[in-house]
Amino acid sequence: MRTATAIETFLEMMSAERGAAQNTLESYRRDLEDAAAFSTATGLQLTQADPATIRAYLDDIAGRGFAATSQARRLSALRQFFRFLYTENIRTDDPTSTLDTPRKDRSLPKILSEADVERLLRRAEEETGDAKATSTAHFHAVRLHALLEILYATGLRVSELVSLPVTVARSDNRFLMVRGKGSKDRMVPLSGKAREAMSKYLAARDATPHLSDSLWLFPAISESGFLARQVFARELKGLAARAGLKTSAISPHVLRHAFASHLLQNGADLRAVQQLLGHSDISTTQIYTHVMEERLHRLVTEHHPLAD
């Protein structure tokens, strides 16, 4: 089977059988096509590549400056691709089976302090009450406030947040039913402030004729029909600047980290945070253990009778 055909067949399987999201499929395609180009240059189709070719490819991307995390992601894509070829009897072996995964440096996630998050949310709420704002500016302010309150209250991935269907907001506003990675559903609770912000946003949305009939909670004129992640990120940085915060330290993903870290700092269980974040593996959530270690150290220092 030609490499291009094999890649297409693999992606179809990932979509149909495993429910891979479009962003995931596009990432696989980029990674596999890059590996295929390298393999072809050595005289072999990717479908015919041996362990030495795959190892040389990993050395090549390392030489191009790819981080260990990116190298590991590409090897993961190749592992799944060759496992698929083996399962489908297209190959009789898996050339990635003997390769070690590049070691990843577990960098700590950027987080905001509770005070900084409060400052950001307060500024967003204040801007919804600007009497001098145009109707368009007012709508954008109400939408941004709702996005931030929901994000910080739930820890959703930004892709999950902007693609929420409007039905989840109308059914029971105490909770959101979210479809995450691998088409897995999870229920996340909403805080009182998030419910209030969402209610005000829904009223503004429903009063806007070209938006009220949309299937999406945050509709937009785009290919997907909902607000682009990049637009939300750009609006968030603008708000951060107006709130006097360092814009380079703020993004939707940083707010997701803040949600998790602040829960753990205030006594939440790691397993509960794992479920709320939608992590399939607890090892992914364990990047936040430094927060728990700080909390436990403070607990012992403050309350143990023999502490210094």
Rank of each mutant, 00 (worst) to 15 (best):
Q80T: 06
A72Q: 04
S171C: 13
E160T: 08
D94C: 15
L156M: 10
K104M: 02
A72M: 10
R119W: 11
I111S: 14
T154V: 10
T134F: 02
Y86E: 13
T134D: 02
T69W: 01
R83N: 04
S113L: 14
F84L: 00
P109S: 15
Y86I: 14
R73H: 03
V158P: 08
H145N: 09
R123H: 12
Q71M: 03
L120H: 05
L120P: 10
V162T: 06
S163V: 10
L78R: 03
A153Y: 05
A137N: 15
A68Q: 08
E118H: 13
R74T: 02
F81S: 03
L108A: 06
S159I: 07
R119N: 09
K104E: 06
L75W: 04
A141L: 10
K132T: 13
A68G: 11
L164N: 10
L164A: 11
R170K: 12
S163M: 12
R106D: 02
E118T: 15
L112V: 07
F82Q: 00
R143C: 00
L161K: 11
I111R: 14
P102L: 14
T128N: 09
F84Y: 05
D93P: 02
E127K: 04
T87D: 09
A115T: 09
G155C: 05
R74G: 00
D94P: 15
V142K: 11
D116E: 14
A153I: 04
L151S: 12
S163C: 12
